[in-house]
Design a protein around this nucleic acid. Structure first.
Length: 881
DNA sequence: CTGGTGCCCTAC
DNA sequence: TTAGGTAGGGCACCAG
């Protein structure tokens, strides 16, 4: 058999159980792509399913193992469903140091029932809910980029008329011939971590056009791209529905992509294909089902069709991401929504946003709401449209660098690509925390074993804002506040001092006591897992940032992109720690962790605010980890420069700016203490707020020149463009203290919309709309909304559904208010393909009122309130009440 | 008209 | 069945 060595990127993994009960074997199948471009299935043998047990109750190293305990272990060893019991090893637990035995089960799927049984027999279970594939990543300390030394057991080009290769694959623990270029067998010890490298993924993007009348698939288009070269190929399918599906399935298995994408495939294309598969076949016809939709990397087998996850057929558990054996399914809609937070979420809107110059990409030449007629009359154009819509998701994923960013997250968290793209935050952290716990001999509790968190913990402190304009504001920020608190105070599940714990500090022990009175060991006694990991991540980030800078200098674009993605991934991961550890369910959670972190944060920031105030430096605003403080500049210093200003004024402005910078840097230095680093983030020549927390605007003059807006309607995706633009202009005037122009502009914009002089396109509102679609396509809103009919976006969505225009739960619904004089107000969905969105006009009064309300908060500081803005003058309103 | 509730979206 | 957190503003709706 040919030896094979090389580097691979892992998309996802799963396991296959085989062997007899008296000689059970479990093989891990890792799927992915080799550095040379070939796809691969790696068969890893040698890992056995295990978990750990210990006795109940408190314990310390002073309590030796008793004969009774050894007897209990011996009884377990005799059980037919236990292969072996090894140990013990003394490990840290929240109830003291305990001897921990390792129990080997027959197969991974036997673990849950065995676990339950042992709990009934009063055993504590540790590491008992780690998915088997994860065990390999943890034990070998590997991530998604691997270096392998194995041997080839199968290759795509080999003929196999007499099943020789199939039998060989099965002999090495496989389920049969995999639909990959090469299948490589390897033993546990030859699976090693490699340096990260850009994996030459193959991505497939597809789009279906379907009949509105019959739900059938009319045609399909597919693009396949090799990321290494950028080469793309297109496939088109039409004709009988079952033939379309069979041909597509053959193509998928032949092209063998690692990642499958499309626009809204999670909620439309995949559910539709499964539904059509079920229409054409019964559950028993596994072969026919495989032929229609067997897109996984595994052979077409009955067992593969019956797998509830990572099998040959696409599946999903409830509303989570779809899964498929050996490939990752990444919806371009979801990625774009997360990355761009767009105002609207249709494919055409996103395309226009990302590729404004490419008009042919956006041309809407097909009436999707009338697809059956369009297909009957001009099938070629429909196909062209379908081909274009299949290509766009690839362009979108490139534009937002979605794949490389997920790959970087996977590399940092040391998980397969699929876990980074579709998994939860706690899975990413688990990967790092559990592997360190194993190395440190800390027992790993089960998820859900922690005491449930009752109610909410108190969060960050938000200082009241003073309404109005404030000149020369220095903005100071704590650098990674929560992570640095966790490091600085050694906050961890494993360092918390519980009054009932056998391990108690003596008088000489220095400990950290939080404002909530929770106590933590200092690092000199024992350093926590979390502080260790966070420090390591901080170091990694600095490294990548330095290499990024170097690559930029050397103009090495690829390297620059890589280190930027890596440093960003590290940042994301670091910021996830607090949230997961403050959650109620994580395995290493205790309610004191989260509340201590936020208590320290509030304590620190309030102390600084008070000290600054005592020094005479007024703090105008503060939120969680930031402080906005008035700088001591010369009295009468200008904070705005105008074109005709004389040199003296310019000099005074520059002097004030310099004073602010000096002040900011000085304060940052003086108030930084150990790991709590206060940074001088930026300087504002003017800061404005109407007096509401989390809503402000500022003119940044250091380190760059820009307008900074937070919270206001300009930042919100459920506002309308006309308001957003008007408000931005208003802020410009506010920051230059030009009250007259500000009021004039506000009055004009309100008056214009009142008189219907504004095109409806500028008044589109959009809000996310939940709902559940059942198998018949009926949408139920009552599970998500207390009163669905009272939600404007639901009413608009119902009109869309009625007209056969499709509805995706979670997607934004665009609508225009057509009549707000009655409650609930009348709304109309905006339909891009129709003239003027297919709406019968708009309610000018409604929009004028909303605009006046929003702008009125700003203009109030300049003497005009919302009612006056709406009326258009101040006099009448004085007498109107 | 007012106050309470449900919901969305944002800042950190 | 399903997994990062809390603080906060503001809108629409609805009961009284």
């Amino acid at each position: 058999m040919d030896a094979w060595a090389g580097r691979i990127g892992v998309v996802s993994g799963r396991y296959h159980s085989h062997g007899e009960n008296d000689a059970p074997e479990t093989t891990i199948e890792l799927f992915g792509r080799c550095e040379d471009g070939a796809s691969i299935c790696l068969l890893v043998s040698g890992l056995r399913p295990t978990f750990e047990i210990a006795t109940m109750g408190k314990r310390s190293k002073d309590d030796p193992i008793t004969d009774a305990e050894l007897h209990r272990i011996e009884v377990l060893r005799q059980r037919s469903d236990i292969v072996d019991v090894r140990g013990p090893v003394w490990k840290w637990t929240d109830l003291g140091e305990k001897p921990v035995w390792t129990v080997e089960a027959i197969q991974p799927f036997n673990v849950p029932s065995l676990r339950t049984d042992l709990i009934k027999q009063s055993w504590m279970i540790y590491s008992g809910d780690i998915p088997f594939v994860n065990r390999l990543f943890l034990d070998n300390d590997i991530g998604m980029h691997l270096a392998i030394e194995g041997h080839i057991v199968d290759s795509r080009e080999w003929d196999d008329e007499d099943d020789v290769h199939k039998i060989n694959v099965m002999k090495h623990g496989g389920v049969g011939r995999y639909a990959v270029d090469r299948t490589v067998a390897v033993t546990l010890e030859h699976v090693k971590q490699s340096e990260p490298f850009p994996v030459p993924w193959r991505i497939l993007s597809y789009d279906l056009e379907t009949s509105i009348a019959h739900n059938t698939i009319l045609c399909a288009a597919v693009w396949v791209e090799d990321m290494a070269t950028g080469d793309r190929r297109v496939y088109e399918y039409k004709g009988a529905e079952d033939l379309i599906m069979e041909q597509m399935t053959k193509m998928v298995r032949n092209e063998d992509p690692d990642i499958i994408t499309g626009y809204n495939i999670d909620n439309f294309d995949f559910p539709r294909m499964v539904e059509r598969m079920e229409h054409h076949t019964s559950r028993k016809q596994w072969k026919a089902r495989s032929n229609l939709l067997g897109w996984g990397r595994t052979p077409h087998l009955e067992t593969e069709c019956n797998r509830s996850r990572t099998g040959v057929l696409p599946r999903r558990q409830s509303n989570r991401a779809w899964n498929l054996g050996g490939r990752a399914i990444v919806d371009a809609w979801w990625q774009a929504r997360q990355a761009l937070k767009p105002q609207r979420e249709t494919l055409s809107f996103i395309s226009k946003l990302l590729f404004p110059d490419q008009e042919d990409m956006q041309k809407m030449d097909i009436d999707a709401s009338n697809m059956d007629v369009e297909w009957a009359n001009r099938p070629d154009e429909v196909m062209e449209y379908c081909v274009r819509d299949a290509a766009l998701p690839l362009d979108i994923l490139h534009a937002i660098q979605a794949i490389r960013r997920k790959e970087a997250v996977a590399a940092v968290a040391k998980v397969p690509f699929e876990t980074a793209s579709n998994g939860s935050t706690s899975q990413l952290l688990d990967s790092l925390v559990v592997r360190l716990a194993d190395r440190r001999e800390v027992a790993v509790p089960l998820t859900g074993s922690a005491e449930a968190k009752e109610g909410q913990i108190t969060g960050g402190y938000v200082h009241d804002v003073e309404a109005g304009l404030h000149p020369w504001i220095a903005v100071l920020d704590f650098k990674s506040m929560y992570p640095s608190i966790m490091i600085g105070h050694n906050v961890c599940y494993t360092t918390r001092i519980d009054p009932s714990h056998p391990e108690q500090p003596g008088d000489d022990d220095e400990i950290h006591t939080s404002p909530t009175e929770a106590m933590f060991w200092s690092t000199s006694y024992r350093k926590g897992l979390v502080p260790t990991l966070l420090e390591d991540l901080m170091g990694q980030r600095d490294e990548h940032k330095a290499l990024l800078k170097q690559a930029r200098q050397d103009e090495q674009a690829e390297k620059e992109e890589f280190h930027d993605a890596m440093q960003y991934a590290v940042k994301i991961l670091m910021n996830s720690f607090y949230g997961v550890f403050a959650s109620g369910f994580y395995r290493f959670t205790h309610k004191d962790l989260g509340s201590s972190i936020t208590a320290w944060a509030r304590h620190n920031i309030k102390a600084i605010i008070q000290k600054l105030d005592e020094e005479g430096h007024h703090v105008v605003y503060s939120d969680t980890d930031s402080i906005f403080v008035r700088s001591p500049v010369a009295e009468g210093s200008p904070s705005v420069l105008r074109e005709d200003d004389d040199q003296e004024t310019i000099d005074a402005y520059e002097a004030a700016k310099q004073a602010m910078i000096d002040f900011g840097l000085e304060v940052a230095q003086r108030y930084s203490k150990d790991s709590a680093v206060l940074e001088y983030e930026k300087g504002l020549s003017v800061f404005f707020s109407h007096g509401a927390k989390k809503r402000y605007v500022g003119q940044v003059v250091y380190p760059s020149e820009e307008m900074l807006i937070r919270g206001y309607e300009t930042q919100r995706t459920d506002s309308f463009e006309y308001l957003t633009t008007a408000m931005k202009q208003t802020f410009q005037y506010a920051l230059t203290d030009d009250g007259d122009a500000l009021i004039q502009h506000a009055l004009e914009t309100v008056a214009a919309v009142k008189k219907h002089e504004v095109p409806a396109r500028r008044l589109i509102l959009a809000k996310s709309c939940k709902g559940r679609v059942d198998s018949n396509g009926v949408v139920d809103f009552t599970k998500d909304y207390a009163r669905p009919e009272s939600m404007a976006q639901v009413r608009a969505a119902k009109i869309l559904i009625e007209r056969g225009l499709g509805f995706t739960p979670g997607m934004k619904i665009s609508y225009v208010v057509t009549n707000a004089s009655n409650r609930p107000m009348q709304v109309h969905p905006w339909i891009e393909s129709e003239d003027d969105g297919g709406i019968p006009g708009y309610d000018g009064r409604f929009y004028a009122e909303r605009l006046a309300a929003a702008l009125g908060r700003i203009t109030e500081a300049f003497g005009w309130n919302a009612k006056e803005l709406f009326a258009g003058n101040r006099q009448t309103s004085l007498f109107s009440f």
